[in-house]
Every structure is written in structure tokens, then in C-alpha cells.
Simulated scan of single mutants.
Amino acid sequence: MRKYKLPAIISVLAAAIIIGSCKTHFETTKANYKTNKSSEAFERGKILVYSICGGCHYDPSAQKFIGTPIHEVPGFIGKVYAANLTNSKSHGIPPHYSDAELKYLLKTGIAKDGRFIPYMLRPNMADKDLNDIIAYLRSDDPAISATDTTIGITHFTPIGKMIMNAMAKPLPYRPGIQKPSETDSIALGRYLVDNIGCFHCHSHSLTSLNYLYPEQSKGYMEGGLKFKNPQGNNIYASNLTTDKQTGIGNFTKLQFRNAVKYGEAPNGQLHPPMPEFSKLQDNDVDAIYAYLRSIPAKYHKVHGQ
């Protein structure tokens, strides 16, 4: 029989107890916030929901925000499914949240029942964009019309629950954030890279993201993160720094726009979820391009590219 040193066993047990006893429920909001549901808010909200939420929640075959399986989660953690965002009262998320609760969830990651959801964080999003997202989710647009279905129920293994509990660090609710001016392309581009979530996929690791200060994320915009395409094959996020050998240093503004909006890069067709950004306005994409050209070029050869 293998002999284990007592201090090592005690350390493992102590770590398990600490992780397992982490606070898992938090205070949510009691605010009485109501969304402005103008036609302008709807149009902008639609662009934002497709661009921010589409990669996980939009099913192209159904043309609905009914959710999708998240294949990138390792099996030892469990099975994760993106939620139904339609206005289904039996399966959808929006009908069960007030406007204030949706806004609070997106800012802090805290659900209405106090659970922390660590992958829906937009602490730096402007109040107007939050308003517009909620306005769209409250609309009768076909993509979010009530669809009484679920593609799966998220289930974490005991190890997965311990990991999730260890990650239970809600972000501060910071109201009053303003979106940068359209005339400041670099500031606007940085804002969009943050809030659309470009840096989530194009940095080194989902577990080392810094949502409050994105540039402090490990391997910020250098790419390399592994995903799976709908066929189950591995794909890797590209280096979006301006390194000319491994990044986008040779992309023109038009080439970058075509890559982001239509998945057409100079070196070939891009994989999903890139085509979900086709609804972004040209000036938004151009602002992202201007911002990316302002950050340091980093040599990082991505697998398979």
C-alpha cells in the first residue's frame, strides 16, 4: 500500500474544506429600474445581443437564442449549456427577471437567486448599452420570441462545484458608466473589445481573465485559446495583436472588417462564432481595428495557424 505523508493529506483536506465552504450566494438588487424601450434602443440592443450573446446563446439552425452546449468545458467539471434567452415563460431567462435584475446580473454576475455566474460579466458596460440590451430582450423580435425548449440542463460534478465555488468573486456594481465618443476611435475600440468580449476568447485562458481591467488578462489579445467547432474539431483563437508574423499586422482596415463581420480573412475562412458579428456597424469594427493597432505587438504562434 502506498504511504502518504500526513501533512500532505491534511493540506488537501484543508483546501477542499476551504473551497467547499466558499460563499456561494450573494445579495442581489432591490432597485426599481425600468428600461427605455425606444426603437433606437431596440436596434442597438439587437446588434449588441447578437454580438455579445450570440456566440453561446444563438442556435443558427433554429435562428433563435435558445442556447447551445458549451463543448469547451472539460468533462471532469461537468456539462454546461448556455441558457434559453427567448421570452418563454417555462424555459427562458428574461421573463423571470426584472429589468433591474438583468442589469445587475450583467454587471456583477449575480443571479436573482443570489448565485454567482462567472461567465456573464460586463462590469465596464455603459448604462445605455445595458438599457438597449434589455430593451431588445423584452421585444417581440422573432429570434427571441418564446420558444418552450431547452437544449440541456447544466450539471457540475463535485469537482466542478468546488472549482465554481472557488471562482465565486462577484464584481462591484458600478453605475453611471458612459460609452466613449464616436470621435475617439481608440477609446471606443477598447470599450468594444472589453464589452463585446473579444479579449475573452483571444487571450490565453478563460480562467485568468481580468474583467475589471482587461489588459491585465494573461496573454491579452495574443490568442491561442482552444475551442471546438460544431463538428467537434479543435480550433484556436487567433493572435489579434499587430505582430506581422503571427498576428494581424498585415491586415488592412477593409480586410479586418471582412474578417470580423463575414469571417473572410486573407488567409482563409474563419470559424464560428466570428460570423455572428455580421450585425456590427462598420464604424464599430473600424474602432476595434484602431484600438488593436494601438496596443503592443506580441509574437505568439497559435497552433494550426
Rank of each mutant, 00 (worst) to 15 (best):
Y4L: 14
K5P: 00
P7K: 15
A15H: 05
A16S: 07
I17H: 03
I18R: 03
S21P: 01
K23A: 12
F26G: 02
E27N: 08
A31F: 08
Y33F: 12
I47M: 11
C56P: 00
P60R: 15
F65D: 01
T68M: 08
P69N: 14
E72M: 14
P74A: 15
P74L: 15
I77F: 14
I77V: 10
V80I: 12
V80T: 09
A83M: 10
L85N: 03
S88Y: 12
H91F: 13
G92P: 01
I93F: 08
P94T: 15
S98E: 04
D99E: 06
L102F: 09
L106Y: 10
K107N: 03
T108K: 05
I110F: 07
G114T: 11
R115V: 06
R122F: 09
R122K: 12
A135P: 00
Y136L: 03
L137V: 08
L137N: 03
S139W: 07
D140E: 12
D141F: 13
D141N: 08
P142F: 15
P142R: 15
I144P: 00
I153G: 02
I153R: 13
T154N: 05
T154H: 11
H155V: 11
T157A: 08
P158W: 15
P158V: 15
K161H: 10
I163C: 03
P170Q: 08
L171C: 06
Y173D: 04
Y173R: 02
R174W: 06
Q178S: 10
K179F: 04
K179W: 05
E182H: 09
T183S: 09
D184P: 00
G189K: 02
R190T: 02
R190I: 02
D194Q: 13
D194G: 02
N195Q: 06
I196E: 00
F199H: 00
H202V: 01
H204T: 05
S208I: 05
S208N: 06
N210R: 13
Y211D: 06
P214Q: 15
Q216P: 00
M221F: 00
E222C: 03
G223E: 01
L225Y: 12
K226R: 14
K226A: 11
F227P: 01
K228S: 05
N229D: 04
N239L: 11
L240E: 03
T241H: 02
D243P: 00
D243Y: 07
K244R: 09
Q245I: 09
T246S: 14
G249Y: 09
N250F: 12
N250E: 09
L254S: 11
A259F: 02
A265Y: 07
N267R: 11
H271F: 12
P275L: 15
E276L: 13
E276G: 01
E276P: 01
Q281N: 06
D282T: 11
N283S: 11
V285P: 00
Y289N: 01
A290N: 04
R293T: 05
I295V: 05
P296M: 15
A297Y: 10
A297C: 05
Y299L: 03
Q305A: 10
